[in-house]
Amino acid sequence: MMEGRTDRDPVTGTETTGHDWDGIQELNTPLPRWWLWTFYLTIVWGIGYCIAYPAWPLIDRATAGLLGYSTRAEVEAQIAKVDARNAEVAARLASADLATLERDDPAYHYGVAGGAAVFRAHCSQCHGAGAAGALGYPNLLDDDWLWGGTLDAIAATVRHGIRNDTDDDARWSEMPAYGEFLEVEQIAAATEFVLQLSGQAHDAQLAASGAVVFADECASCHMESGTGDRENGAPDLTDAIWLYGGSRESIIESITNSRFGVMPAWGPRLDEVEIKAVTLYVHQLGGGE
């Protein structure tokens, strides 16, 4: 390709760039010049942007930019704006009594929504994101409560926790490990009685002797009827809800070695409004009393 620049493609009549690869020529349809200038403009804009906004990463931060813009500050400003808008309802939530926060109270839904956030951040690790609990961690959706399901009872549980040694007001009880006091046969008999209490398949003969063991050893906390005692966090043994599972093996294990969970006191970590909010949230999950 030495003929110079006036080459034209015979098919289209378009000028070629003069580049030729094995007989394939590159046509030249000139771009408009403003396009080029637009391209330069984007470069200038890019440089200006780097100067005006945070851009270049340094060791522990980035260049701040002349405008002092930061996404963090913007988020803070947005949060402040939302807080300001919610100031009235937030104040009502803070000052109102739990009992007066009825369902149609303007602060109720605000509290439930806030409580959901508190729950996700602090409670879901044990109780699960859907509050359904797990083996050993109570399900908060059902209608059974170890320590009570009224607003006040839930608030007290949240504030002081259960069987922790950091809060003097923590709810406290401790089931003995009966493996140390009772014979294996006695435990087996008591287990059959508990199965009978909850309406499950059981050995009636063993259950009859288990009733005696139960009356002697268990009834003081679980009550003679087996319906439990919320003062002591003693579970209702007659219902269909089992914290550690309701199978024969599991009940034997519970009686022999005893089981009980621990919950931290949230009083020191959450403020009063947060405790109120998470209480409202848990209360409306489906089992509130």
Partner: peptide, 18 residues
């Protein structure tokens, strides 16, 4: 349907979906 959890067992053994 609320799928976390799939269902809840109530104390009388009934099953509840939300």
């Amino acid at each position: 349907p609320v799928r976390n959890p799939q269902f809840v067992v109530l104390s009388d053994g009934s099953i509840r979906n939300a």
